[in-house]
């Protein structure tokens, strides 16, 4: 099953299964209540403020994820913009269902990233993108920039799926069941991907450890 088809399948599942309406959350706390879905419903009714709130809360998370997976700011921007366009388009048909809006979006972004990584390998195997935004590196300090670069370089040594799983679990902070939905695999496969990915990262970082000179602050 290709990346596009899995995302559409999840979209169909969301659309086909109407769930609890947002109003029920006003009376009692509902852990499954999806505030993003409520905002999306308002956007679908023509509320421009809802679009701003959704964009503010979601774009930063998606961009951070895409940056870590792709290691390229321009490509990450393109991926996030495309994912958000798909969200705006699907808004009138969206019904609150099992999958959260953020989960659906992460899945779209993950699939778009996979497409780009495959295309990148097909075009030029030795073309490694710059790992970090130089402006931010200046602000954060040289050592922190070095750490970011080291992490990015280490992430780029991992296979695509391991890299995505590690970023989703350890940097984006998502739970394994949600990652399983995003990557369209079982929870056990997610555990395996993250464990192997973490071991791979540890090895890659250990080889850079002495050169970075931050042994005493970790």
């Amino acid at each position: 099953m290709g990346p596009g088809t899995t995302e559409k399948a999840l979209g169909r599942a969301c659309l086909a299964r109407p769930g609890r309406v947002a109003v029920s959350a006003m009376h009692e706390p509902d852990p499954s209540f999806d505030a993003d879905a409520a905002l999306l419903a308002r956007y679908a009714q023509g509320d421009p403020a809802a679009a701003r709130l959704l964009a503010t809360s979601l774009t930063s998370r998606l961009f951070a994820h895409a940056m870590r997976v792709l290691g390229d700011g321009m490509e990450a921007e393109d991926v996030v913009q495309e994912a958000m366009v798909r969200l705006w388009r699907i808004a009138p048909e969206w019904r609150t269902g099992e999958a959260k809006v953020s989960t659906w979006l992460y899945r779209v972004v993950a699939n778009l990233c996979t497409d780009r990584l495959r295309r990148r390998r097909a075009v030029a195997l030795d073309d490694v993108a710059e790992p970090a935004d130089p402006a931010q590196s200046v602000e954060q300090g040289l050592q922190q920039a070095a750490r970011h670069d080291a992490l990015q370089r280490a992430l780029e040594t991992l296979p695509d799926r391991q890299r995505q799983a590690v970023v989703l679990r350890h940097i984006d902070g998502l739970a394994n069941p949600e990652i399983a939905v995003i990557l369209d695999v079982g929870v056990e496969a997610v555990e395996s991907l993250t464990a192997r990915g973490k071991r791979g990262l540890a090895k890659a970082l250990a080889s850079q450890r002495d050169a970075l000179g931050f042994e005493d602050d970790g």
Binding site: G46, P48, R52, A55, T59, F63, Q81, R89
Partner: peptide
């Protein structure tokens, strides 16, 4: 610039 583009898309596609 990305946020600007996202908001412009949202406005253009707003029902």
């Amino acid at each position: 610039a990305l946020m600007q583009r996202v908001l412009e898309d949202a406005e253009a596609l707003r029902p």
